[in-house]
């Protein structure tokens, strides 16, 4: 499968990345090379095998739904690039 420039731009957009022109060229080549290698999975003898999503047995783990307070509010907010009145601040979303 050949990776096109349009495809890379579409993928970058999905991933919320802005690519410079030289990055586009580089990532097309990289992605092509890695996908050519990754295609080997299609030769693996997987007829009739189920998919595995995790390393251990997939089962639901339950616990009581109890409220626990996390009191280090300052600790959380110190990582906010911008904050106001104990809240994470972002620009206006709706006009």
């Amino acid at each position: 499968m050949q990776v096109s420039k349009e495809e890379i731009l579409h993928i970058a957009n999905l991933a919320q990345l802005e690519l410079k022109d030289e990055e586009i060229e580089k990532y097309i080549l990289n992605l092509q090379e890695i996908l050519d290698f990754a295609n080997i999975v299609n030769n693996a003898p997987t007829e009739g095998l189920d998919i595995t999503i995790g390393a251990n047995e997939a089962k639901n783990i339950f616990r009581k739904d109890e409220v626990k307070t996390f009191d280090n509010i300052e600790g959380l907010l110190q990582n906010a690039p911008e904050q106001d009145k104990h809240m994470f601040k972002i620009p206006k979303v709706l006009d």
Partner: peptide
């Protein structure tokens, strides 16, 4: 991130991601 987004994106999911999960079983 680009590779990961690609293999999860519509049209390639089955050929790469799903197949890889089957190989994981193998």
């Amino acid at each position: 991130i680009i590779l990961g987004t690609y293999v999860l994106s519509s049209g390639y999911y089955d050929a790469y991601y799903k197949k890889a999960q089957q190989v994981r079983t193998l």
